[in-house]
Amino acid sequence: MEAFDYMRPTSVVDACAALREAGGTARALAGGTDILVQMREGKLRPAALVSLRDVPGLRSVRRAQDGGLTIGAATRLIDIETSPDVLRDHAALAEAASWIGSVQVRDRATIGGNLCNAAPSADTAPILIAYGSSVTISDGRDERTLPLEDFFTGPGETVLEPGELLTAISVPPAPARSHAKYYKTFRSAMDCCTVGVAVLVVFAPDSRVVEDARVVLGAIAPTPIRAPRCEEMLRGKELDTALMASVGALAAEEARPIDDVRASAEYRRVLAEVLTKRALAAADSWLQKGAGA
Protein backbone atom coordinates (compact mmCIF):
# COMPACT_ATOMS: atom_id res chain seq x y z
CA MET A 1 0.00 0.00 0.00
CA GLU A 2 1.28 3.47 -0.78
CA ALA A 3 1.80 6.01 2.00
CA PHE A 4 -0.84 8.60 2.84
CA ASP A 5 -1.65 11.15 5.52
CA TYR A 6 -3.74 9.91 8.37
CA MET A 7 -5.87 12.05 10.62
CA ARG A 8 -8.06 11.16 13.53
CA PRO A 9 -10.38 14.11 14.23
CA THR A 10 -12.75 14.10 17.17
CA SER A 11 -15.78 15.86 15.70
CA VAL A 12 -17.78 15.94 12.49
CA VAL A 13 -16.74 19.56 12.02
CA ASP A 14 -13.06 18.69 12.23
CA ALA A 15 -13.48 15.62 10.09
CA CYS A 16 -15.10 17.60 7.30
CA ALA A 17 -12.48 20.31 7.61
CA ALA A 18 -9.74 17.70 7.41
CA LEU A 19 -11.31 16.17 4.30
CA ARG A 20 -11.63 19.56 2.66
CA GLU A 21 -8.10 20.62 3.46
CA ALA A 22 -6.54 17.38 2.29
CA GLY A 23 -8.06 17.90 -1.15
CA GLY A 24 -10.12 15.96 -3.62
CA THR A 25 -8.58 12.54 -3.19
CA ALA A 26 -8.93 12.47 0.60
CA ARG A 27 -11.34 9.89 1.92
CA ALA A 28 -13.13 9.07 5.10
CA LEU A 29 -12.01 5.85 6.76
CA ALA A 30 -14.70 3.90 8.57
CA GLY A 31 -14.21 0.13 8.90
CA GLY A 32 -11.73 0.10 6.04
CA THR A 33 -13.03 -3.17 4.63
CA ASP A 34 -13.67 -1.68 1.21
CA ILE A 35 -11.21 1.12 0.96
CA LEU A 36 -8.11 -0.75 2.14
CA VAL A 37 -8.69 -3.48 -0.43
CA GLN A 38 -9.03 -0.88 -3.16
CA MET A 39 -5.89 0.89 -2.01
CA ARG A 40 -3.89 -2.28 -1.87
CA GLU A 41 -4.94 -3.11 -5.40
CA GLY A 42 -3.87 0.37 -6.47
CA LYS A 43 -7.38 1.24 -7.63
CA LEU A 44 -7.49 4.12 -5.20
CA ARG A 45 -4.61 6.35 -4.08
CA PRO A 46 -5.99 8.84 -1.58
CA ALA A 47 -3.60 11.52 -0.34
CA ALA A 48 -5.17 11.27 3.09
CA LEU A 49 -7.47 9.10 5.14
CA VAL A 50 -9.62 10.79 7.73
CA SER A 51 -10.51 8.27 10.39
CA LEU A 52 -14.01 8.34 11.84
CA ARG A 53 -12.91 6.23 14.77
CA ASP A 54 -12.92 8.98 17.35
CA VAL A 55 -15.80 11.03 15.97
CA PRO A 56 -18.60 10.82 18.54
CA GLY A 57 -22.24 10.33 17.67
CA LEU A 58 -21.76 8.33 14.50
CA ARG A 59 -21.95 4.92 16.05
CA SER A 60 -25.39 4.29 17.45
CA VAL A 61 -28.87 3.03 16.67
CA ARG A 62 -31.78 5.03 18.05
CA ARG A 63 -35.40 4.03 17.86
CA ALA A 64 -37.93 6.86 18.05
CA GLN A 65 -41.37 6.65 19.65
CA ASP A 66 -42.99 6.09 16.28
CA GLY A 67 -40.74 3.12 15.60
CA GLY A 68 -38.44 4.87 13.13
CA LEU A 69 -34.70 4.30 13.35
CA THR A 70 -31.80 6.71 13.20
CA ILE A 71 -28.59 4.86 12.52
CA GLY A 72 -25.23 6.58 12.83
CA ALA A 73 -23.19 6.17 9.65
CA ALA A 74 -20.28 4.57 11.46
CA THR A 75 -22.42 1.92 13.14
CA ARG A 76 -20.89 -1.45 12.56
CA LEU A 77 -22.83 -4.15 10.75
CA ILE A 78 -22.36 -6.54 13.67
CA ASP A 79 -24.12 -4.01 15.91
CA ILE A 80 -26.96 -3.63 13.43
CA GLU A 81 -27.60 -7.34 13.06
CA THR A 82 -27.75 -7.78 16.84
CA SER A 83 -29.51 -4.53 17.77
CA PRO A 84 -32.84 -5.20 19.53
CA ASP A 85 -34.07 -1.90 18.13
CA VAL A 86 -33.40 -2.99 14.57
CA LEU A 87 -34.66 -6.52 15.13
CA ARG A 88 -37.95 -5.25 16.51
CA ASP A 89 -39.63 -3.92 13.36
CA HIS A 90 -36.81 -3.99 10.81
CA ALA A 91 -35.61 -7.55 11.02
CA ALA A 92 -35.00 -7.70 7.27
CA LEU A 93 -32.31 -5.03 7.67
CA ALA A 94 -30.64 -7.00 10.45
CA GLU A 95 -30.75 -10.08 8.27
CA ALA A 96 -29.30 -8.27 5.26
CA ALA A 97 -26.48 -6.99 7.46
CA SER A 98 -25.82 -10.47 8.83
CA TRP A 99 -25.29 -11.81 5.30
CA ILE A 100 -22.43 -9.46 4.60
CA GLY A 101 -18.97 -11.02 4.59
CA SER A 102 -17.81 -12.82 7.71
CA VAL A 103 -17.90 -12.02 11.40
CA GLN A 104 -14.41 -10.56 11.02
CA VAL A 105 -15.65 -8.26 8.28
CA ARG A 106 -18.81 -7.22 10.10
CA ASP A 107 -16.86 -6.49 13.29
CA ARG A 108 -15.27 -3.63 11.33
CA ALA A 109 -17.53 -2.81 8.40
CA THR A 110 -20.02 0.02 8.84
CA ILE A 111 -23.36 0.72 7.28
CA GLY A 112 -22.17 4.13 6.11
CA GLY A 113 -19.18 2.52 4.43
CA ASN A 114 -21.44 0.04 2.70
CA LEU A 115 -23.52 2.89 1.26
CA CYS A 116 -20.71 5.37 0.51
CA ASN A 117 -18.68 2.72 -1.24
CA ALA A 118 -21.66 2.53 -3.58
CA ALA A 119 -21.04 -0.91 -4.97
CA PRO A 120 -24.04 -1.95 -7.07
CA SER A 121 -24.04 -5.08 -4.93
CA ALA A 122 -24.05 -3.32 -1.54
CA ASP A 123 -26.29 -5.51 0.58
CA THR A 124 -27.82 -2.95 2.91
CA ALA A 125 -28.92 -0.60 0.14
CA PRO A 126 -31.91 -2.44 -1.38
CA ILE A 127 -33.59 -3.15 1.93
CA LEU A 128 -32.98 0.38 3.23
CA ILE A 129 -34.50 1.79 0.06
CA ALA A 130 -37.43 -0.57 0.37
CA TYR A 131 -38.05 0.80 3.86
CA GLY A 132 -38.01 4.30 2.36
CA SER A 133 -34.86 5.42 4.16
CA SER A 134 -33.16 8.75 3.81
CA VAL A 135 -29.62 9.86 4.49
CA THR A 136 -28.19 12.89 6.24
CA ILE A 137 -25.08 14.49 4.85
CA SER A 138 -22.97 17.09 6.59
CA ASP A 139 -20.17 19.34 5.37
CA GLY A 140 -19.35 20.36 8.94
CA ARG A 141 -21.51 23.48 8.75
CA ASP A 142 -24.73 22.51 7.05
CA GLU A 143 -26.69 19.34 6.77
CA ARG A 144 -28.82 18.07 3.94
CA THR A 145 -31.14 15.12 3.83
CA LEU A 146 -32.21 13.14 0.80
CA PRO A 147 -33.85 9.85 -0.03
CA LEU A 148 -31.33 7.04 -0.14
CA GLU A 149 -32.43 6.09 -3.64
CA ASP A 150 -31.17 9.47 -4.85
CA PHE A 151 -27.83 9.05 -3.07
CA PHE A 152 -26.21 6.75 -5.63
CA THR A 153 -25.11 8.14 -8.98
CA GLY A 154 -23.14 5.22 -10.43
CA PRO A 155 -20.88 2.33 -9.50
CA GLY A 156 -18.68 3.69 -6.71
CA GLU A 157 -20.28 7.12 -7.08
CA THR A 158 -22.58 9.10 -4.83
CA VAL A 159 -23.79 12.65 -4.46
CA LEU A 160 -21.16 13.26 -1.74
CA GLU A 161 -19.02 16.29 -2.46
CA PRO A 162 -15.43 16.58 -1.28
CA GLY A 163 -15.50 17.57 2.37
CA GLU A 164 -18.86 15.94 3.02
CA LEU A 165 -19.66 13.07 5.33
CA LEU A 166 -22.61 10.80 5.54
CA THR A 167 -23.64 11.10 9.16
CA ALA A 168 -26.88 9.20 9.60
CA ILE A 169 -29.44 6.97 7.95
CA SER A 170 -33.09 7.42 8.89
CA VAL A 171 -35.36 4.45 8.48
CA PRO A 172 -39.08 5.23 8.72
CA PRO A 173 -41.29 3.11 10.96
CA ALA A 174 -42.42 -0.08 9.31
CA PRO A 175 -46.04 0.45 8.15
CA ALA A 176 -48.77 -1.59 9.82
CA ARG A 177 -49.47 -4.89 8.08
CA SER A 178 -46.23 -4.67 6.15
CA HIS A 179 -43.64 -7.29 5.46
CA ALA A 180 -40.12 -6.70 4.21
CA LYS A 181 -37.68 -9.25 2.92
CA TYR A 182 -34.23 -9.18 1.36
CA TYR A 183 -32.92 -12.11 -0.63
CA LYS A 184 -29.48 -12.48 -2.13
CA THR A 185 -27.75 -15.31 -3.93
CA PHE A 186 -24.28 -16.57 -3.17
CA ARG A 187 -21.67 -18.49 -5.15
CA SER A 188 -20.25 -19.74 -1.86
CA ALA A 189 -21.43 -19.33 1.71
CA MET A 190 -19.50 -16.06 1.95
CA ASP A 191 -20.04 -13.90 -1.08
CA CYS A 192 -21.07 -10.53 -2.39
CA CYS A 193 -24.50 -10.86 -3.86
CA THR A 194 -24.83 -11.90 -7.48
CA VAL A 195 -28.27 -10.37 -7.32
CA GLY A 196 -30.12 -8.96 -4.33
CA VAL A 197 -33.80 -8.17 -4.16
CA ALA A 198 -35.66 -6.35 -1.39
CA VAL A 199 -39.43 -6.25 -1.33
CA LEU A 200 -41.68 -4.40 1.08
CA VAL A 201 -45.37 -5.24 0.87
CA VAL A 202 -48.07 -3.33 2.75
CA PHE A 203 -51.34 -5.24 2.94
CA ALA A 204 -54.73 -3.58 3.15
CA PRO A 205 -56.61 -4.14 6.39
CA ASP A 206 -58.18 -7.59 6.68
CA SER A 207 -57.25 -8.67 3.19
CA ARG A 208 -54.64 -10.11 0.89
CA VAL A 209 -54.79 -7.01 -1.25
CA VAL A 210 -51.55 -5.11 -1.65
CA GLU A 211 -52.02 -1.52 -0.62
CA ASP A 212 -48.47 -0.44 -1.36
CA ALA A 213 -45.22 -2.07 -2.34
CA ARG A 214 -41.59 -1.34 -2.98
CA VAL A 215 -39.39 -3.57 -5.06
CA VAL A 216 -35.68 -2.80 -5.09
CA LEU A 217 -33.08 -4.63 -7.14
CA GLY A 218 -29.38 -4.80 -6.32
CA ALA A 219 -26.33 -5.79 -8.41
CA ILE A 220 -28.38 -5.56 -11.51
CA ALA A 221 -27.82 -1.97 -12.62
CA PRO A 222 -25.12 0.67 -12.02
CA THR A 223 -26.85 1.50 -8.73
CA PRO A 224 -29.50 -0.24 -6.64
CA ILE A 225 -32.77 0.52 -8.44
CA ARG A 226 -36.46 0.59 -7.67
CA ALA A 227 -38.64 -1.41 -10.03
CA PRO A 228 -41.58 0.99 -10.44
CA ARG A 229 -43.53 -1.14 -12.87
CA CYS A 230 -43.43 -4.06 -10.47
CA GLU A 231 -44.65 -1.84 -7.67
CA GLU A 232 -47.44 -0.50 -9.87
CA MET A 233 -48.51 -3.97 -10.88
CA LEU A 234 -48.77 -5.02 -7.24
CA ARG A 235 -50.79 -2.10 -5.96
CA GLY A 236 -54.46 -2.78 -5.33
CA LYS A 237 -54.26 -6.41 -6.31
CA GLU A 238 -54.66 -9.57 -4.37
CA LEU A 239 -51.27 -11.23 -3.84
CA ASP A 240 -51.73 -14.65 -5.41
CA THR A 241 -49.29 -16.98 -7.11
CA ALA A 242 -50.13 -15.68 -10.56
CA LEU A 243 -49.42 -12.12 -9.50
CA MET A 244 -46.14 -13.15 -7.90
CA ALA A 245 -45.10 -14.81 -11.15
CA SER A 246 -46.05 -11.80 -13.26
CA VAL A 247 -44.26 -9.37 -10.97
CA GLY A 248 -41.21 -11.61 -10.97
CA ALA A 249 -41.16 -11.67 -14.75
CA LEU A 250 -41.49 -7.91 -14.81
CA ALA A 251 -38.57 -7.53 -12.38
CA ALA A 252 -36.42 -9.41 -14.86
CA GLU A 253 -37.47 -6.91 -17.51
CA GLU A 254 -36.79 -3.90 -15.33
CA ALA A 255 -33.29 -5.08 -14.50
CA ARG A 256 -30.41 -3.59 -16.43
CA PRO A 257 -27.70 -6.15 -15.70
CA ILE A 258 -24.25 -6.63 -17.16
CA ASP A 259 -22.06 -9.67 -17.77
CA ASP A 260 -19.16 -10.01 -15.36
CA VAL A 261 -17.11 -12.73 -13.68
CA ARG A 262 -19.86 -13.40 -11.20
CA ALA A 263 -22.70 -14.02 -13.64
CA SER A 264 -24.03 -13.31 -17.08
CA ALA A 265 -26.61 -10.60 -17.56
CA GLU A 266 -29.07 -13.24 -18.65
CA TYR A 267 -28.64 -15.26 -15.48
CA ARG A 268 -28.97 -12.13 -13.37
CA ARG A 269 -32.38 -11.56 -14.92
CA VAL A 270 -33.35 -15.09 -13.98
CA LEU A 271 -32.28 -14.43 -10.41
CA ALA A 272 -34.12 -11.10 -10.28
CA GLU A 273 -37.27 -12.92 -11.26
CA VAL A 274 -36.83 -15.79 -8.82
CA LEU A 275 -35.84 -13.65 -5.84
CA THR A 276 -38.66 -11.17 -6.42
CA LYS A 277 -41.14 -14.01 -6.55
CA ARG A 278 -39.71 -15.53 -3.39
CA ALA A 279 -39.74 -12.25 -1.49
CA LEU A 280 -43.41 -11.85 -2.41
CA ALA A 281 -44.10 -15.43 -1.40
CA ALA A 282 -42.44 -14.70 1.95
CA ALA A 283 -44.80 -11.77 2.46
CA ASP A 284 -47.75 -13.95 1.59
CA SER A 285 -46.78 -16.74 3.92
CA TRP A 286 -46.21 -14.17 6.68
CA LEU A 287 -49.74 -12.96 6.10
CA GLN A 288 -51.13 -16.49 6.08
CA LYS A 289 -49.41 -17.18 9.38
CA GLY A 290 -51.28 -14.29 10.97
CA ALA A 291 -49.25 -11.28 9.92
CA GLY A 292 -46.51 -11.64 12.45
CA ALA A 293 -48.98 -12.01 15.27
Binding site: R187, S188, A189, M190, D191, C192, V261, R262
Partner: peptide, 27 residues
Protein backbone atom coordinates in the same frame (compact mmCIF):
# COMPACT_ATOMS: atom_id res chain seq x y z
CA UNK B 1 -19.29 -27.09 -8.88
CA UNK B 2 -17.38 -23.93 -8.03
CA UNK B 3 -13.83 -23.44 -9.16
CA UNK B 4 -12.51 -22.18 -12.44
CA UNK B 5 -9.97 -19.57 -13.44
CA UNK B 6 -11.68 -17.16 -15.79
CA UNK B 7 -9.67 -15.28 -18.35
CA UNK B 8 -10.36 -12.50 -20.75
CA UNK B 9 -7.92 -12.11 -23.61
CA UNK B 10 -5.45 -14.28 -21.78
CA UNK B 11 -5.64 -12.32 -18.53
CA UNK B 12 -7.06 -14.06 -15.49
CA UNK B 13 -9.77 -11.84 -14.06
CA UNK B 14 -10.70 -13.76 -10.94
CA UNK B 15 -7.28 -13.67 -9.31
CA UNK B 16 -8.59 -13.44 -5.77
CA UNK B 17 -10.74 -15.41 -3.35
CA UNK B 18 -13.57 -12.92 -3.83
CA UNK B 19 -14.17 -14.27 -7.31
CA UNK B 20 -12.30 -17.57 -7.33
CA UNK B 21 -14.54 -19.38 -4.91
CA UNK B 22 -13.20 -22.33 -2.98
CA UNK B 23 -15.58 -24.10 -0.64
CA UNK B 24 -15.80 -22.55 2.78
CA UNK B 25 -17.15 -24.15 5.91
CA UNK B 26 -20.71 -23.18 4.99
CA UNK B 27 -20.51 -25.07 1.71
Amino acid sequence: LMERLISEEGRIVNDRFLDYKIPNIGD
